[in-house]
Amino acid sequence: MQNQKGKNKRVFGICLLAVALLGGIIIGKLIDFTYFKVEKTINLIDILSIIVTVLAAYFVTKILDKEKQDYRTEKDLIIKRTEDIYQLLEDSHGKVVTGLIKYQEAASHCKRINVSLSCIYRIMNNVNLNVDIALKKDVLDNTKKLRDLLTDTPKISEDQIQSSNLPSEVKDSFVHLTQNRILEIEAMYDKLRDNILLLQLDINKK
């Protein structure tokens, strides 16, 4: 089917060229141009020049368009990967605010976010996509801050555990957070969402 379409396109192109050539001959023979003179001979250098110009235009357009298209596709794929990080953030955020997240699960979410980010940065380097360095660092720093907020419990003795109002503690492997700590975590999730959006916009601009 595809082959047939290509064949039809080629035949149509040849017909168009033949019609244009014939049209040109007929116009040259039949019509008398008052102010213009139609040469009966063609300079060989001119023909060569036209052919080279047409071929150069064809190849440059074809190659440049392909490169541009490839670059666009690469950017789209990278942006798609950053959307996966968005989803990871949404998933862990939902669990944290309900207070039903296991310590191991929180640590695992943080690792997945970090590993996905590192992977995206590596791919961006491979395809020479240079985004704002400060923004890249900001995303990594905020991911580390989120990991600390979620999984850093205080170093204190049994007595202190009983008497203090700890920002976070782990009981039976589940993370228990105070309201203040939840607010801090939510603020960090917001910052990270903003960071990811800025990263996407920056990638898109390149």
Binding site: Y103, Q104, A106, A107, S108, H109, C110, K111, R112, R147, D148, L150, T151, D152, T153, K155, V170
Partner: peptide, 18 residues
């Protein structure tokens, strides 16, 4: 591993000194 929490690493390695 699936991932490390900050406390796990701090207690494991910082605890060597403490």
């Amino acid at each position: 591993t699936a991932g490390y929490g900050t406390s796990f690493l701090e207690e494991s390695f910082g605890g060597l000194i403490r």
